[in-house]
């Protein structure tokens, strides 16, 4: 998939928080085949450079780090965090989250558009955590965003794709934009479904980190993402209302009749 001009072979991105240990995180990253992992400057650091050791462990895996603004509830917070992240991680990529509701952690779309405009003008490559709302998507694209990351369902809820219709519509509206399902995936079949819909990739966090065996779950998601993409490229059948026999009915030999004697 394409992310701001770079070709990324793996369609799976991984969060780095809440693993049982950094060792298990490292092994999960390897098992998932992810080339991009997200790190949260706010949540994990309590200061600009204080999480350095943890980030070094992440970097040792050789993956590209995508800083995020997780936990930011206002435009100003998100913009400041993005600017800090650019310095700390030496990248202009930012996964932009502006949280609008503490219970559902759903994005504040108004703040998101505003922050996207500010950061795009400042030279950032914004990957926006959004909903499947098409008008918000239009505004984000106008503001300079080239990678949209709609939610599947609320962050950490493990409910999968809540609004398949909406996600399908978004894919149809932006056939050429990179679209990544960001939040709410729980099991590999959710990821496969997103890829089958034609989404370019998925971002996972707690589905892997909080699994009983995160390393095994990372492998399972890797397989599901590959399967989903392959299925999409293979042009799957569309559902229909009636049975469609795989062999013609007309002229078929009658079973149980004289022909079998």
């Amino acid at each position: 998939m394409q992310i701001y001009g770079q070709t990324i072979a793996s369609r799976l991105m991984l969060g780095t928080a809440r693993y049982p240990s950094p060792d298990i995180l490292k092994r999960a990253i390897e098992a998932s085949g992810a080339e991009i992992v997200t790190v949260s400057l706010r949540r994990e650091a309590a200061g600009e450079r204080a999480g350095r050791k943890f980030w070094d462990i992440v970097r040792e895996t050789g993956v590209k780090v995508l800083p995020n603004t997780a936990g930011c509830h206002s435009v100003r917070e998100a913009v400041t965090t993005a600017q800090m992240a650019r310095e700390v991680f030496g990248t202009n990529w930012i996964k932009l989250e502006v949280i609008g509701d503490a219970d559902t952690l759903q994005p504040d779309l108004f703040g998101l558009v505003e922050a996207t405009r500010i950061l795009s003008d400042d030279g950032f490559a914004v990957l926006a955590y959004t909903t499947e709302d098409l008008v918000a998507a239009d505004r984000l694209v106008e503001a300079g965003c080239r990678v949209l990351m709609p939610w599947g369902s609320p962050i950490g809820s493990a409910r999968g794709l809540n609004n398949v219709y909406g996600l399908r519509a978004m894919r149809a509206r932006y056939p050429d934009l990179t679209l990544i399902v960001d939040a709410g995936l729980g099991v590999p079949s959710h990821a496969a479904q997103a890829l089958e819909l034609g989404y370019d990739g998925v971002l996972l966090s707690s589905a892997v980190a909080l699994a009983g065996d995160p390393v095994a779950m990372a492998s399972a998601f890797k397989l599901a993402v590959a399967a989903g993409r392959l299925a999409f490229e293979a042009d799957p059948l569309l559902p229909r209302d009636m049975a469609e026999p795989s062999t013609p009915v007309l002229g078929q030999a009658t079973l149980g009749g004289a022909a079998l004697q």
Binding site: E44, A46, F54
Partner: peptide
Amino acid sequence: MVESDAAGPVT
């Protein structure tokens, strides 16, 4: 539990 070597006061 914060991955940080900051020793400062409680946030």
